[in-house]
Amino acid sequence: MWKVWYCRNHGYYRAEERKCESCIEIMDEEKAVRLGKLLSGVLRHFPERFGVRMTPEGWVNMDYLARALSRKMRWVRKKHIIALVSSDEKGRYEIRKNMIRARYGHSVNVELDYEDNDLEKLYYGSNEEEAERILEVGLKPVKQRYVHLSTTLEKAIEVGSLRSETPVIIEVDARKAQEDGIRIMKATKDIALAEEIPPKYLRLIKEST
Rank of each mutant, 00 (worst) to 15 (best):
R101T: 03
A102G: 11
R103M: 12
R103Y: 08
Y104A: 14
G105D: 11
G105S: 11
H106K: 07
S107C: 11
V110M: 00
L112I: 02
L112Q: 03
E115V: 02
D118N: 15
D118C: 13
L119R: 15
E120P: 03
K121V: 09
K121E: 08
L122I: 07
L122A: 02
Y123R: 06
Y123S: 04
Y124D: 05
Y124R: 14
Y124V: 09
S126G: 12
N127P: 07
N127I: 12
E128T: 12
E129Y: 14
E130C: 13
E130D: 15
R133W: 11
G138I: 00
K140T: 13
P141Q: 08
V142K: 15
K143G: 12
K143M: 08
R145P: 00
Y146H: 05
Y146F: 10
Y146S: 06
H148C: 12
T152H: 05
L153Y: 09
L153W: 04
V159A: 07
V159S: 06
G160T: 03
S164V: 04
E165W: 06
E165C: 02
E165T: 11
T166H: 08
V172G: 03
D173H: 10
A174Y: 04
A174M: 04
R175C: 05
K176R: 14
K176F: 00
K176Y: 00
D180E: 15
D180N: 15
G181T: 05
G181P: 05
I182D: 00
